[in-house]
């Protein structure tokens, strides 16, 4: 579990997305999205490229008008009253978009005039901490430096909600680590609610306590990380009397199997509704031998879900 988690069940959800529908022309990108992010939580939104993550973030930030549905931040409709909705929100965008000619100090001063609650001291401290050059124009910084500077800008406004749209895109391993460490550092009692989209699933595993997955324009998953890890499992077992390979997997009747692979030694399957009870029933089957259960990483869960999407795409 992520350190310093301050997950609270009470109070209104800082982020509430209801019935979101986004279309580009005739193409539906997002449909019927309902997603509520609880106060103090770190929620990760996963999805393949083009799955609509950025569209969802744009709608959430009031930058794009949804075809239907609403996005609320801290109780305010972000399209109708963007200024109020973003009053206590900070954003780290997918593409660093600060004015290119400004250096870090200028950006700090500029942001201070645009954002209420700006903390100049915290910003200066983060520049030092990240070892960012203060007099180099933004456009001349490296990709990693830009991302860290955007994070410094975001955190220095002391936000209640921090939205990160694939902040680690294109960063090297060190920069990624620094970035996520800083996000982790910002969490804790009174820290912001975090909503993050990323492909960096390994890093997410350490900080996210809730995960949502977009597939086929819909939310395939939205639940606690713990619950995801409990119900998504890989099962392996052998078969005592090998029958027609086409019949392999019949034993998984009570499971919702995302993938079933027949190997030389037996069967390997990923299921999304693992319970000890179902596993016991599998064990009790006379021709099943050496049945084992394996926990899945977030990456493996995502690949399994994305694999489902790929199958659907192919169909």
């Amino acid at each position: 579990m992520k350190p310093g988690s301050n997950h609270q069940e009470r109070g209104p959800n800082p982020i509430a997305i209801d019935g979101l529908l986004v279309r580009y022309g005739r193409r539906t990108v997002l449909s019927g999205i309902d997603l509520h992010v609880q106060k103090g939580s770190v929620t990760a939104l996963l999805g393949r490229n083009g799955s609509g993550k950025t569209s969802l973030v744009r709608c959430l930030l009031g930058q794009q008008k949804p075809e239907a549905g609403t996005c609320r931040i801290l109780g305010t409709d972000s399209w109708k009253d963007r200024t109020k909705a973003l009053g206590r929100v900070a954003v780290v965008p997918e593409e660093p978009d600060a004015p290119p000619e400004m250096n870090a100090l200028q950006l700090g001063r500029f942001s201070g005039r645009l954002c209420p609650g700006w903390d100049h001291g915290a910003f200066a401290a983060r520049l030092r901490q990240f070892q960012l050059p203060s007099n180099t124009a933004f456009q001349k910084l490296s990709r990693g430096q830009k991302a860290l500077l955007m994070l410094a800008l975001a955190l220095s406004s002391r936000p209640s909600v921090l939205i990160l749209d694939d902040p680690s895109l294109g960063l090297d391993a060190v920069a990624r680590q620094v970035l996520f460490e800083e996000v982790l550092g910002s969490l804790g009692e009174g820290g912001p609610t975090v909503f993050i989209t990323t492909h960096d699933l390994d890093a997410l595993e350490t900080i996210a306590d809730r995960v949502a997955v977009l597939t086929g324009g819909k939310l395939a998953l939205s639940e606690e990380m713990e619950s995801v890890k409990n119900r998504f499992r890989k099962l392996t077992y052998g078969l005592e009397r090998p029958e027609d390979p086409a019949d392999a997997g019949q034993e998984l009747d009570g499971f919702d199997a995302l993938s079933v692979k027949v190997r030389g030694w037996g069967v390997e399957a990923v299921v999304s509704n693992f319970t000890e009870e179902r596993f016991s029933r599998l064990l009790a089957l006379p021709h099943v031998v050496d049945a084992e259960t394996h926990a899945l990483s977030l990456r493996q869960v995502f690949i399994a879900l994305a694999g489902e999407e790929r199958k659907e795409d192919q169909q």
Binding site: L61, G62, Q63, R82, T83, K84, L86, G87, V89, V91, P93, E95, D97, A98, P99, P100, S111, L114, C115, P116
Partner: peptide
């Protein structure tokens, strides 16, 4: 070039 998002990601009125 999507730089306008810098302003729209902040509580700055249109």
């Amino acid at each position: 070039e999507r730089r306008i998002g810098f302003y729209f990601a902040r509580p700055v009125p249109a």
